[in-house]
Design a protein around this nucleic acid. Sequence first.
DNA 1: GCGCTCCATACCTCCAGAGATATCAGGTCA
DNA 2: TGACCTGATATCTCTGGAGGTATGGAGCGC
Lengths: 297, 297
Amino acid sequence: MERPELPLPQLHAFVVLAEELHFGHAAARLGIAQPPLSQQIRRLEDRVGHALFSREPGRVALTAAGRELLPAARRALTDLTDGLAAARAVGSGRAGRLRIGFAASLALTVLPGLLRTFRQRFPAVHLDIREMTTAPQIAALHDKAIDIGLLREPPADEPEIAFRTVLSEPFVAVLPAAHPLAAQRTVHIAQLADSPFVLLPRAAGPGLYDRITGLCTDAGFTPRTAQHAVEWQTVCALVETGLGVSLAPAGIRRIRLKGVAFRGIAPGTARTRVAVAWREADPNPLVAHLLATVGGE
Amino acid sequence: MERPELPLPQLHAFVVLAEELHFGHAAARLGIAQPPLSQQIRRLEDRVGHALFSREPGRVALTAAGRELLPAARRALTDLTDGLAAARAVGSGRAGRLRIGFAASLALTVLPGLLRTFRQRFPAVHLDIREMTTAPQIAALHDKAIDIGLLREPPADEPEIAFRTVLSEPFVAVLPAAHPLAAQRTVHIAQLADSPFVLLPRAAGPGLYDRITGLCTDAGFTPRTAQHAVEWQTVCALVETGLGVSLAPAGIRRIRLKGVAFRGIAPGTARTRVAVAWREADPNPLVAHLLATVGGE
DNA sequence: GCGCTCCATACCTCCAGAGATATCAGGTCA
DNA sequence: TGACCTGATATCTCTGGAGGTATGGAGCGC
């Protein structure tokens, strides 16, 4: 890459003159007087070392050398204006790419609305959406493998990562339709003490897992886990088969399954928080934009 | 085409720094001190409106905006250096295109050597070679359809067209091998008075035609034309069949045909000139180069 | 011949940018 | 803690280019 020899303003003048083939008109299009244009062209020709235009009285025409230079000059100019526009779009956060990790349970609740409004506000932004459980999201944020995390029960005091609560959901009891408690409108957690539980594995999201088991111990028992499943969809299916019951964020009511009943619980104060997470020091304007779209806190 | 916003020197510095990712090294590669480089980058970032590099202590890295701008800057710079080189090559006559018209009878004599030496001197020049008789060559020169003509018996006083003699050939008599005169080493033109002639049509090259008939009238007779043919090759073939005799430039001896004899003529002073023709005012350096390669005069 | 068009030339102003040196500030490492 | 690396900042000089106005000079049409 050698040092550039031809100044851009001269090349711009060259391209315009090549289009107009008339010094007066070209100068007008450039918004300058005619003599400066003559000078620009002359300087450019001096640098190139050869005439770029033939000036026979009455007609200006490109020389062979000019014809050779013209496409290169055109490409360079358009490349630069396009590149500049793209860089500005990305720099200002009107374009670019944002990598989002989300917990599976949010695929049916907060995620769709969020994506819809963000996409209509920033249509030029490419969104990379990947399902991840909580712990990998935190790791991916540290590794800069994702820019945004959407998770439940944000861990306290994670260094360099910031959280903002987006949604606070009550819990519901997930019961087989045939379960005796399904007859009640509301279920006391303590009433679940004798039923086996179907839960997500703790590793998938320690925060939520501990929250659920915490609710049980608060109610005076330790839940007996009959089965683990990695998706809420599966949890519901297993509950339907009568394998056990579960406690889940209210959002999973959207999973409609015939043999499964969802019932509010008492005490109703038990809630689970959905949070958005990001690197505190991330300069990416898209992160700020996304935070503005989710609102919350 | 809008006015360019980003000066090339800054883009150059940007590209080099993007490659080195180290201000000191990049400055060294640019042959300047480090502070000016910091300034250049800063100015560029100010224009773009966004940071192009992230300077965390210990490591310099491109930002998303910088990654967006980099390929455009690279392309623009290489386009310009390439375009400049091409324009200079064409301007100086080291490259480009030259259109040459030539008389068919020269395809076997002056043309091959001329093309060979020109091509080895200017390998980047594309040669457009087309066969044309004399009159169309002159017209094509005026119309700028060709840049160089190679013809016989250049017309005197053609305005704006210059000629230079490349070769002066004697005439030879073209005889059927069985012709009585084929027994002589040299033939007097007058001896051909009773034989019918095979000639090129006058329109193909009035100069040469008039020259040949002039030789005959000088020898005291008017040639009787038995047949016209548009190529010397055909002339020879017709002579071989015994249809007549001919007078031709010595160069056609290269056409080896069993039944045809070539004999020198008396007086031996009769010669035909091959000339190169060009537009007197042609600024194309390739024309000058070609004239230099043919030499002559 | 006169005026018009069109480009070139001459000459001036002005400023942005490229370059320098000197110095400072934040990290890293021994 | 001090030496060192790395990049930023401050300040100065100087030049080249971009722009202007005024004018010259070659063709062309009437």
